[in-house]
Nucleic acid binder design. Structure first.
Lengths: 352, 352
DNA sequence: CAGTCGGCGGCAAACGTTATCATCGCTGGG
DNA sequence: CCCAGCGATGATAACGTTTGCCGCCGACTG
């Protein structure tokens, strides 16, 4: 493999000139530039990453930890992050932590080893090591959170207003006439889930319906959605709607309902979260809170790189807008009319 | 940030000893080892990646290109790759090519720059540059394909027997009594899709039913599944089943059928490919060809690292077993009994 | 014509590590 | 008692690059 010396020799210049041609071409005379470029192409020379990295102290890499890549929501955020990073000349080092803090910890070492210049954390886990690394740096830690956040560490993050989003979800159900509502939440240690839970209960209080809110925890997987739905059905009767803190749990829940012979939305309305691509294809299509995945990825990268490049002295978090997407999994509860008003049972029930 | 000199000074030893303590601890006397370790922990020293990389010529990184991370099948393979790599001490550089050969090409440069030691290609795209890099290396190119493969380049790969898998899918339908079958294939430049198409037609020939096979191309997305299904329905009547070359297109197709008032499997049977996690949750649950995603990832990494480490002189491709998972989206066509035999219309139609 | 200025390119240091080789002291065997 | 040998550690040479500094030369101006 040819190195910069080989190129220099062949072009009859010094290695400094070769380096200059490659990094700042206009700092060198056109004639020499041509000579060098010829040698470069002839030898198939490419700058060696390690040498450059060592000299410049920049690896042009960012580390992204994800609790679970196979979660379509995360994978789409990742996709956006990757694209944005790439556009800025950065590569992405992938770390699937599988919800394991130990793994995340191992990966965090890459930051300290200067293998990566910055660190994006998806999911709520943030190990002690990461926390520590984030503090030991003079100035701003090169860490940004996305979607989730760890309340312990004072780390800038970009996400939607989960409190408001959950409020909107439940508001939608109230406006349809629902009152007794099940909630399939996330793990208790998830700040995101806590925020959404607060959003729902806050809105329920306004309605004076706190008692009618039934919560079952899940872990954002399809299976946990099933389990939670079964719990909900066993624990509470007269439920007319279920809010799920992500679409996968909603899909799992809808499957349970279907197997029990319950029809969505006739018997029960279901609302999801995230608006993953499959949400449009469920039966019936899922009403859900859409998150701006693309923008989340873009903003996260922008924020991180601003910190890394020292273009900002005080990084602030970013809140992006969410959007309620009403599809066909929600409708007024049985026994009410279109407006959500309770009607006489004798009247024909109209829907959608 | 403390470097090896700082540690050496503090421990009162040479840098060589520090390096030894960290890499081969038993090559150094216990007393010195302790002294060094104390200094290391006190200073929070971690080996600098760039220095190590430059010296050892090993980056401990592999590059993985994926046509589309948001495809759940790919993301699960990626997950397995990442885990296996991690276990072997390697990190994964992620490259989402978005089906763009130019992007893949840019990323391939990382291999030449020695930024990554090896290269895993998911998807069928393989740019000229990659092809070239794979040849310029003396000995084996550090490239392994997964799932798909490029027939042009002689690159080892790991995948299922797509020909046989497609045969099994269509065999299943024939055995149920279907004959006139629609196929939603992949892009024509996809070798994987070609193989599967060959598998279906080969099996159809045995049945003397080539004329009853109707093919529409897709591109593995949900939307393309819808489009292809519409084409199929418009072009061919009397179709009793559809085989799709991935689950997402199957889900898209089933949505079209549903909107047209067609019931699966009563009116039409549907078979998918991949067995993504959502396949179990479609309505009805999708019959599909399961791929051993976990094993594909493991084997790919194993194969690549064997090449990288020079543990093998001639890398051969790996074929992993697939499996037909029969769920509820397939049944005998209307007008036949359980055994798949054509019956009198007057008889009651039984199913499942 | 002489002096100065600017553009271009070379020299060399530094980035942080590992591995090879040399060295030194100690031990054990002849 | 001496020397061979061995175990432990130190000195040092790369690995390949970028970049500050400086010198040279040509051109332009007074």
């Amino acid at each position: 493999m040819a190195n910069i010396f080989d190129v220099a020799k062949r072009a009859g210049v010094s290695i400094a000139t070769v380096s200059r041609v490659l990094s700042r071409p206009d700092a060198v005379a056109p004639a020499t530039r041509r000579k060098v470029m010829q040698a470069v192409t002839h030898l198939g020379y490419t700058t060696n990453a390690a040498g450059k990295h060592l000299r410049t102290q920049r690896s042009d890499k960012i580390l992204v930890t994800i609790p679970d890549i196979s979660n379509p929501f995360y994978s789409r955020v990742l996709q956006s992050i990757e694209e944005s990073a790439q556009r800025e000349g950065y590569s992405v080092l992938l770390a699937d932590t599988q919800h394991d803090l130990k793994r995340e910890e191992r990966y965090t070492l890459m930051l300290r080893r200067r293998d990566a210049e910055g660190f994006i954390v998806l999911g709520h886990g943030l190990s002690d090591v990461a926390f520590e690394v984030s503090r030991e740096t003079s100035g701003l830690a090169h860490i940004v959170g996305a979607c989730e956040f760890n309340s312990r560490a004072n780390i800038p993050r970009v996400n939607i207003d989960n409190h408001a989003a959950a409020r909107d979800a439940i508001e939608h159900l109230y406006s349809l006439g629902h009152r007794r509502i099940g909630v399939i939440a996330g793990p208790v240690d998830s700040a995101l889930s806590r925020d959404r839970l607060e959003g729902t209960t806050a809105r329920a209080k306004v309605q004076r319906a706190e008692k009618d809110l039934v919560v079952a925890p899940g872990d954002f997987t399809l299976e946990s959605g099933e389990k939670a739905a079964e719990q909900l059905l066993a624990r509470a009767d007269r439920l007319t709607a279920i809010v799920c803190f992500n679409d996968q749990m909603a899909i799992g829940a809808m499957d349970v309902l279907r197997r029990r012979g319950l029809v969505v939305p006739d018997d029960l309305s279901v609302v999801g979260f995230d608006d993953i691509s499959f949400a449009r294809y469920t039966v019936p299509p899922l009403t859900t809170i859409a998150q701006p995945v693309r923008e989340i990825g873009q903003e996260t990268v922008r924020l991180l790189l601003a910190i890394v490049r020292g273009q900002t002295s005080s990084a602030v978090s970013v809140i992006l807008p969410h959007r309620l997407v009403v599809r066909e999994s929600t409708a007024p509860p049985a026994g009410t009319n279109k407006r959500g008003r309770r009607v006489q049972i004798e009247e024909p029930v109209s829907r959608r």
